[in-house]
Design a protein around this nucleic acid. Structure first.
Length: 285
DNA sequence: CCTGCTACCTGGTCGC
DNA sequence: TGCGACCAGGTAGCAG
């Protein structure tokens, strides 16, 4: 269940191992994983390229590409969204191909970058050098500010919540409001702020908005420090589990006692997702 | 413009 | 043991 901290962890790992080696070829094992262009053109575009740098935007990964023979030029970008179950693994080429492998990239140093994805929602794009990433990867253009950026100010957050009529949990999951928060960290941030997930953003006090904004930043930042979560299928590029999972206050803990007050954690459906909360620590008003 | 609902997927779990 | 229902959830598309 990769959200911003998991994608950031993958991004940092990829920058440590994948840069500077020529992509000699690749293989697409599941056609629909390649969102643009069709898989033949995709592989042809990446062949002979080097990865210059990986960046993260929301839950998207972008790798700057350059022709291996002319590293100063641009060959566009490789875009990746892991969606629910996607993983990028940097493995020795002799390693057996894992189940759910969807795309392979063969590098010049006896290594492969493999994209695995059990539930096949994940997507890869090639962005040609004469196009903007948001032109090809439409979801990028809809993203709101990064949570660690100056644009995600209290003034911005407060203004966004002010005239809206939807539960605050739904608002936090809206990638146009703030990029990168998913179901786990939305629940955790609301717990840390003492805010019930069903309260409408417009009904929050200024102090609550301030606390929530800070909690969102804190919970994402703490999880990056812990290298992501182990909630379901997340692995770093080296195949190692993160360890935020053991630290969850409310996520996936319905029925278990609140770590602060002992009240059983409850679960309700919001935005088609499970919202987990402590009815004592997160009152409705 | 705003909101919420559903499809897209696979595999694990639960009740009968 | 088998089988269907349900659940996990990010995002696009669409209905109201």
């Amino acid at each position: 269940v990769p959200e911003l901290p998991e994608v950031e962890t993958v991004c940092r790992g990829l920058n440590q191992v994948t840069l500077g080696d020529r992509i000699q070829g690749g293989e697409v094992l599941l056609e629909r994983t390649i969102a643009f262009p069709e898989s033949q053109g995709f592989l042809a575009a990446l062949q002979g390229c080097c990865l210059v740098q990986w960046e993260r935007r929301g839950k998207y990964l972008l790798a700057q590409l350059a022709p291996a023979a002319q590293p100063a030029q641009s060959a566009g970008y490789l875009g990746v969204h892991l969606r629910m179950t996607g993983q990028l693994l940097w493995v020795d080429a002799t390693q057996a191909v894992e189940k759910h492998t969807r795309v392979r990239f063969f590098f010049g140093n006896d290594h492969e970058l493999r994209f695995l994805d059990q539930r096949t929602f994940g997507q890869l794009w090639w962005v040609p050098p004469d196009r903007q990433p948001a032109d090809i990867i439409t979801g990028l253009g809809r993203l709101g500010p990064e949570p660690f950026s100056e644009q995600f100010s209290l003034e911005y957050f407060s203004r966004q919540l002010h005239h809206r009529h939807r539960p605050i949990k739904n608002a936090l999951l809206d990638q146009a409001l703030v990029a990168g928060v998913g179901n786990i960290y939305a629940d955790e941030a609301l717990f840390l702020s003492g805010i019930h997930p069903q309260i409408h953003g417009a009904d929050l006090t200024l102090a609550q908005r301030q606390r929530l904004r800070e909690s969102v930043i804190q919970v994402l930042s703490d999880s990056i420090t812990a290298k992501g979560t182990t909630f379901r299928t997340f692995r770093t590029v080296e195949g190692i589990n993160g360890n935020y999972g053991g630290q969850a206050w409310v996520y996936d803990r319905d029925g278990q006692p609140c770590k602060v007050c002992g009240t059983p954690i409850e679960r309700m459906k919001l935005a088609g997702r499970s919202a987990h909360f402590c009815p004592q620590c997160q009152p409705r008003s």
